[in-house]
């Protein structure tokens, strides 16, 4: 079991290295995308700083808490798609019958497929997440350690959710539009304080759009340095991942080959 896990980790590390080197072939484009994403995320922090300058608290949450949300969402999303760059492409890969090439390898299909590509802009998100947390929140050692763990938990959630939403293509044909909107909804809700929402919307944030595991439980864990909140966040992320993997392999039975001639460089 551990040997198998170590083998897949080594595979993931090798893919990350290779993908990184291939991105560096277009160094200018790669760097400009990373910088642009960093600037993109910074604009939102500027918005929140301006907002809290005018209105100092939002249901007990202050600017630090909202920056923590952004830091967690960005670092989690960045790690998820920087490493598993194919997760966001899953719907189109399935719809176009492009899984065939990945089925030929002697590796578990999903984990191998996910690490096969890297999103360049995702590294801008990841970099932003850690830098903004260190510079603007200025955590002590325990908070920083917990933040790193929670960013990994958030990354697990984003990968699991992308797999879940992308797997809809097995059932709906081409689900790219629905998948994209569902992912957008998760990202959007993940970057606003969950305390803004009540009733059925709050329920939605822990089920259909599991943004509560990004924007509520991890932030509460960091605010109170609370391990139960952190464990609940991690538990939620693992559940989303398990749901995504289950739906993917269930849907795989309905997959139809595209008969595409494809080469991987």
């Amino acid at each position: 079991m551990f040997k198998k896990l170590a083998s897949y980790l080594a595979l993931a590390v090798t893919y990350v290295k290779l993908n990184f080197l291939s991105q560096l072939e277009y160094r200018g484009a790669f760097l400009s995308q990373v910088v642009a994403m960093f600037v993109n995320d910074s604009v939102w922090v500027v918005f929140w700083v301006l907002f809290f300058t005018r209105f100092p608290a939002l249901r007990g949450w202050n600017v630090s808490d909202v920056i923590t949300i952004w830091a967690l969402a960005a670092s989690g999303f960045g790690l998820a798609h920087g490493i598993c760059g194919n997760a966001l492409q899953l719907a189109s890969l399935i719809a176009r019958g492009q899984l065939d090439v990945w089925m030929l390898y002697p590796r578990a299909l999903l984990s191998h497929l996910l690490v096969g590509r890297m999103s360049a802009t995702a590294w801008g998100d990841a970099l932003f997440g850690y830098v903004v947390y260190l510079v603007m929140v200025r955590p002590d050692c325990p908070h920083l350690l917990l933040f790193v763990l929670l960013s990994l938990s958030t990354a697990v959630l984003f990968v699991g959710f992308s797999v879940l939403s992308g797997s809809l293509s097995f059932y709906l044909g081409n689900s790219e539009g629905v998948t994209e909107q569902w992912n957008f909804s998760l990202i959007t809700f993940s970057t606003y304080p969950a305390t803004l929402f009540e009733g059925w919307v709050k329920l939605l944030l822990f089920t259909l759009i599991p943004a509560g595991f990004v924007s509520y439980l991890p932030v509460e864990a960091l605010r109170q340095l609370s391990l139960p909140h952190a464990a609940a966040a991690l538990g939620g992320s693992v559940m989303v991942l398990v749901a995504g993997v289950s739906v993917f392999y269930h849907g795989l039975g309905r997959y139809e080959s595209g008969n595409l001639m494809e080469m991987r460089g």
Binding site: Y26, G28, A29, S32, Q33, V35, A36, M37, V39, N40, V43, V46, F47, L50, F51
Partner: peptide, 23 residues
């Protein structure tokens, strides 16, 4: 330029914040 998507993203975000889209 090798890639213009970065420039576009920066312009759109400047419009969002400085153009008054959010506030």
């Amino acid at each position: 330029l090798e890639d213009t998507s970065g420039l576009l993203l920066i312009y759109s975000r400047l419009t969002m914040i400085l153009g008054g889209m959010l506030l």
